[in-house]
Design a protein around this nucleic acid. Sequence first.
DNA 1: CAGTGGTCTAGACCACCGG
DNA 2: CGGTGGTCTAGACCACTGC
Lengths: 229, 229
Amino acid sequence: MAQSWQTVQAEVMRRITERLWLPGSLIPGEAELANELGCARVTVNRALRELAEKGILDRKRKAGTHVVKNPQRRATFAIPVMRIQVEGRGARYDHHLLERKTSQAPAHILSRMKLAADNQPLYLRALHFADGRPFAFEERWVNLHVVPEIADADLDTMSANEWLVNNAPFTRGDLSLGACKANQELAELLQCETGDALLEMERSTSGKEGSITAVRLIHVPGYRLLTEL
Amino acid sequence: MAQSWQTVQAEVMRRITERLWLPGSLIPGEAELANELGCARVTVNRALRELAEKGILDRKRKAGTHVVKNPQRRATFAIPVMRIQVEGRGARYDHHLLERKTSQAPAHILSRMKLAADNQPLYLRALHFADGRPFAFEERWVNLHVVPEIADADLDTMSANEWLVNNAPFTRGDLSLGACKANQELAELLQCETGDALLEMERSTSGKEGSITAVRLIHVPGYRLLTEL
DNA sequence: CAGTGGTCTAGACCACCGG
DNA sequence: CGGTGGTCTAGACCACTGC
């Protein structure tokens, strides 16, 4: 009668999908389930905690565990380093640094990175290639007050993306996804048509010393971000 | 000297971000860390397991725990029911069923849903509104062999999205995000310009009896998917 | 083979919060 | 207040896999 937490989880999922436990209903407490299934309470806890993290259950002290009414399923995307992403597709990776300067950043970047108005971040523009064809365009600001070492880095050999990932681990970050139209410049860089719809990803990351970098990635037309639920 | 798993996790993160433990390096074993930090091995295990799930550590039996070289950070998006999403923005939700029929599905849908060629799914087209303005367009196929009850559902009152979420919990699913251009029809439906860039989300879900539904969601221009890292 | 992580158990105490 | 989940502990056995 011994149970593993995966077994318990599967059994709980079965009762939910077979509608023995309806959305919104209260399910038995940990102790009761542990007793019924013949395992320790901690084991039940582990199983239920994961389902709560997935958004399938709602757990509150004293109130007990409920099946969520309108399940907000969560999807997890991997955000790999560009090189790994390209090589993972079986393609040869290349990148080209288009521009590199230290200058005033636009107001919306300063505010996103919470930088003082006189802070002059490093500004980079780069293209990532897969098998020699454009894969993504990158526009990036780096807070030199937090990672001054990047000023001396050879960003032609290792992309800023990769350099930062390996030299400035972050503790928090924001990410936003949207679509944008290719203007003439983007069309030339990505070798696509003006007006093409492009997937745009904006990220900003920070450590405990403050904002590290903000980046805007524009992917080539047809690019899709995939995941499982 | 007692430690909580959050404390342990924070300490490990500190050692990584302060580069005491470099990317690629082997960190002490659970037992050693537990001893050093003055807590039970299970507590260390809990802390490290979460970091491994986040893609910061790589754990292998016998090989030990390594700091990942090219951290593949993972971002988690909530995929709420459209109504909840709209109401969560403080707007009034509405939806309108544009079309509802049972018919042959295109080949790529049949293959995505792994349906037999003679399976005639339910086909739906609907618009979701926020404060009376278009928010997203939805095109959906539903496998009537798995959820025949939807044939009798009043999908004008409750959207198919919500009906399925509450009546056909799924166990697996795929999701893909991309960008597409508004054709004339989409432009009219979403009240935007032809050629506008739109965020497109495709989902397909299945239970143990097979594929449940495949849906294509096209969001209004300017819509962004947000998350934290 | 042997070392490392993965998990289970029983018991305990605590924190939160609904009634 | 008291019930519920959240967590810690010490010890144990197991599973995988590098050497």
